[in-house]
């Protein structure tokens, strides 16, 4: 029986949680503030980029993936990758149709 790939369990402490929680609140304030600035198409790009950064912070630290085994890291990465593939294929199908021409 092989050993599990995890290191001995890593307890994440209050300091890390406070730092991450504070960063998430700052990013929330930033994304709202930036939404009041006219950036054209980049309003959506910036807002989604900040959302991705926030989600990554939550996954890595609140959900402990930063300290988890390779199995869990790969599981999470495979899940998000599959999601991106599915979204891309939906969008590819959508933009390659002659909407409105029939």
């Amino acid at each position: 029986m092989s050993e599990p790939t995890a290191n001995p369990h890593h307890v994440v402490g209050p300091k890390v949680y406070l730092a991450i929680g504070g960063t998430l609140l700052l990013l929330t304030g930033a994304t709202t503030a930036i939404s009041f600035v006219e950036l054209g198409v980049f309003n959506a790009v910036v807002a989604l980029a900040i959302a991705v950064i926030k989600a990554m912070l939550v996954v890595l630290f609140f959900m402990h993936i930063r300290y988890s085994s390779k199995l869990l890291k790969l599981t999470v990465a495979a899940g998000f990758f599959t999601f991106l593939v599915l979204i891309s294929m939906v969008m590819t199908d959508y933009i390659s149709r002659a909407w409105g021409l029939w």
Binding site: T28, T31, A47, I50, K54, V59, F62
Partner: peptide
């Protein structure tokens, strides 16, 4: 929480301008 982190910009913010 993560679901809301994406719902918030998509529903509230990106169409403001």
């Amino acid at each position: 929480d993560i679901v809301w982190i994406f719902l918030f910009p998509l529903l509230y913010l990106i169409s403001r301008h």
